[in-house]
Design a protein around this nucleic acid. Structure first.
Lengths: 110, 110
DNA sequence: CATATAACTCTGAACTACAGAGTTAATCCA
DNA sequence: TGGATTAACTCTGTAGTTCAGAGTTATATG
């Protein structure tokens, strides 16, 4: 059976990776606002993704308040793609697979 | 942002739910073999799914070795469908979304 | 009847997730 | 100028989760 990358298969990190992949890059606060998560929690999950080289950071220079921008690395994007493919294999995604399975089905909502 | 059911968004439980949804039902040993997991681990994850009424069990009667068959409940199937839809919204599934994102892309492997 | 084995269940250790307190440094207003 | 405020992190301890393997029960088998 297909294994799911445990680094990506966690609610907050899946969202984090998906958001960064979609947005290109984001600041700490943007991520915090978008994912509605506490500072500490965001930090610890970002750290894991950074440690795995899935996410990279770039500190802004110049005037104004210091700010770090986070983005997916090529490694991270590749892992995300592999992860999505694993989900595809595992789940009957996009094929109404559950409704059509036969057993127990038929009550799948209006 | 779309929340992912934490009960389903865990490697082993996603596989468990997907397997049961696909197979209709399975015994403890079949699950153990298919998912390649230790007894204790399988038990504890099954317990969570049962506690949430995502999975039901039916003990076999009659002669022969007792055996419990596990299957998804309607509640579980509905949750799985919602989960899959949440994944859809979150991830650029099936749309080559990552490769086309622009930033950082272009190295997405030949 | 003794041994083996399938089918679970329990327990505790290791790891993960999380919130909030703490830190640093830039901006604001008098 | 300088004290207060706030944004942007970072650290730490607690609570919760995951996991393997030891333990249990009951059936089959020599």
């Amino acid at each position: 059976m297909e294994a799911l990358d445990p680094l990506l298969h966690q609610p907050l990190r899946t969202q984090l990776a998906a958001f960064l992949a979609g947005a290109g890059e984001a600041s700490f606060s943007e991520l915090k606002r978008s994912l509605d998560v506490s500072d500490g929690n965001l930090e610890s999950h970002l750290k894991k993704l950074i440690a795995a080289d899935y996410v990279s950071l770039q500190r802004s220079e110049g005037p104004g308040r210091a700010q770090t921008r986070y983005s997916m690395t090529p490694t991270g994007l590749a892992a995300l793609q592999r992860y999505i493919q694993a989900l595809h294999k595992l789940l009957p995604i996009g094929a109404e697979g559950l409704a059509g399975a036969g057993h127990l089905a038929g009550n799948t909502g209006s």
